[in-house]
């Protein structure tokens, strides 16, 4: 099997709480930063409008969770329903990963964003809203307590708390093995070529 990255098995780190529903991709990475032609360097613009008081990114907004000293160095982001809604821009997961996040734990995710995370080895974990409440409370109370996300066991734990999560088997395999999706498909060249012979000329 072709591999593109080492893969994810478990991740442990502190969490930053973004206690908000419907965080859209325009908020994650605003359009003025989409003019780049590379995948790198989006982290400094992550959550630009909320994170900075000025457009030149000189003045941090002290109210914003990610700017609070308690959450400095967090590698896990907590959020609520419908995280990543809006555009298909893959710049959103690129920005989150470049900032230093390895895992996003939220009540639910928008479809395109979720797929984009998988393709970038950024682990999206969906927990039900009661578990999210408990997790937010635990992180607010003890910001320095590490959170462990075990993909193999499909569990999130913090202190004595432990939550199970579900993930589609094929997504899990992609993340665990860090597979090169294109390389895998190219191995099916014969099938693709065969399919093409069945297509009508006008298609």
């Amino acid at each position: 099997m072709t591999q593109s990255s080492p893969g994810i098995t478990t991740h442990t780190g502190t969490a930053a709480p973004l206690d908000q529903a419907n965080v859209d991709t325009d908020q994650i990475i605003p359009k003025q930063f989409l003019t780049s032609v590379s995948r790198e360097g989006f982290g400094r613009h992550l959550f630009h409008d909320w994170r900075y008081l000025d457009s030149d990114e000189q003045e941090l907004n002290p109210q914003f969770a990610l700017n609070q000293p308690d959450y400095a160095g967090a590698s896990i982001l907590l959020a609520r329903e419908n995280f990543g809604c809006g555009s298909s821009r893959e710049h959103a997961p690129w920005a989150l990963a470049d900032y230093g996040f390895n895992v996003i734990i939220a009540t639910s995710f928008a479809d395109i964003f979720y797929g984009n995370c998988i393709n970038n080895q950024l682990l999206p974990v969906a927990l039900d809203s009661n578990d999210m409440d408990t997790l937010f409370t635990a992180v607010h109370a003890h910001p320095q307590t590490p959170v462990t996300v075990d993909l193999e066991a499909q569990q999130v734990s913090i202190g004595d708390l432990c939550f199970d999560f579900s993930i589609a088997p094929h997504h899990k395999t992609s993340l665990l093995k860090g597979l090169d999706a294109i390389g895998q498909t190219l191995e099916l060249e014969d099938r693709i070529a065969q399919f093409e012979t069945t297509r009508a000329a006008w298609q």
């Binding site: 298909s88 395109i112 797929g115 984009n116 970038n120 999706a181 294109i182 099916l188 693709i192």
Partner: peptide
């Protein structure tokens, strides 16, 4: 017809296919 991310754009360019559920 549906929107895709850039990794999938690359996948379609290379294979003219997409893996989907």
């Amino acid at each position: 017809a549906f929107g895709i991310g850039t990794s999938q754009v690359e996948h379609v360019l290379a294979t003219q296919t997409l893996k989907q559920s």
